[in-house]
Design a protein around this nucleic acid. Structure first.
Lengths: 169, 169
DNA sequence: GCCAACTGTAACTATATTTGTTACAGACGT
DNA sequence: ACGTCTGTAACAAATATAGTTACAGTTGGC
């Protein structure tokens, strides 16, 4: 389907910020966790800022943090901020208008695809960033109960549990 | 999102065959309605045949027709036949395993994306190819009540009603 | 005021996926 | 045997995302 990973990355980024609480994160730090280039992160942060999900500060000691509490950010907010189009597309080139099916299939398909999009949005609207963080918690408890630091600094390496990511990619 | 039009095209193709009833359609005819190359259609027909949605016959007087009645083909069948992956992807490169968020976000995201996929599948499972044809009918009634021919032959041009395709593309 | 540390953004390349095209072997009715 | 089809390979084109380099502009600390 050639789906993009933008949504996954956006959720990852915002989860880091929820985790970091009010501490502003630098694009370089986020990029290290996401395992990509800092510019990619900054581009995405701009989109998230336009949708009022994060606020960024330029200059020294700058960085980005959530614009509001994690429980007030739904996955739908994130989805709409970074994914421009619906789940499916119609034909690349419009069908033959001289064919009775071709001329009308677009209308029917649009209705169907709208239903699909709505279903997706309903699911995403029902989960907040806080829920994501909560689901994350059980996996990353430290021995002393203290919350682990978000960012790798190369010294402490903590790999609480190895996940098996399914064959989505 | 870079979604593909494969699903839309597949529905179009099968709708043509439902419309044509038992008459086998040639890839060239289908391509004319879809407005693409016949090889693109044949490739898709192979996939649809593998999922037992159509049967094709080689040789002269060959062509393809539905493998079963339109009411016994759901849009989910079609979707699964031509779209390989789920709606979203995870990160292109795996996140940093040394970050407590990075190492676990994949697991959480997989759960979410599975929910999304399920929602999409539930919607698609609830509509059959027959439903699509039915929704098409009101648009393409001929003056004498007879069903219009599927394929353009360059002579009779019938454009029952012009649709306004939304900005999906 | 100056420097160092950031973000925002442009311009470009790389990579991946889908779509379109040409070509041809093989199947099949007549 | 011939013409008409499908099935498939091989490749080109188009599109979208992701990654990279470079740099202007902002900000805090000195």
């Amino acid at each position: 389907m050639s789906t993009s990973s933008r949504f996954a990355v956006a959720v990852h980024v915002l989860t880091l910020m929820a985790w970091a609480d009010e501490e502003p994160l630098k694009s370089e730090q986020v990029a290290e966790s996401v395992n990509t280039n800092a510019v990619v992160i900054r581009r995405m942060l701009c989109e998230l800022a336009e949708s009022n999900l994060v606020v960024s500060q330029t200059g020294s000691m700058g960085g980005s943090k959530l614009a509001r509490l994690p429980e007030r950010i739904t996955l739908l907010d994130i989805y709409q901020a970074v994914e421009s189009r619906g789940v499916f597309s119609l034909h690349r080139h419009p069908p033959n208008p001289a064919c009775p099916v071709g001329v009308n299939i677009g209308t029917v398909l649009n209705d169907v695809l709208d239903e699909v999009d709505s279903a997706v949005e309903r699911v995403l609207a029902n989960m907040t960033l806080r829920d994501v963080v909560s689901r994350l918690q059980p996996c990353v408890s430290t021995t002393d109960g203290k919350r682990a630091s978000v960012i790798t600094n190369g010294k402490r390496k903590q790999v609480p549990r190895v996940q098996s990511v399914s064959a989505r990619n």
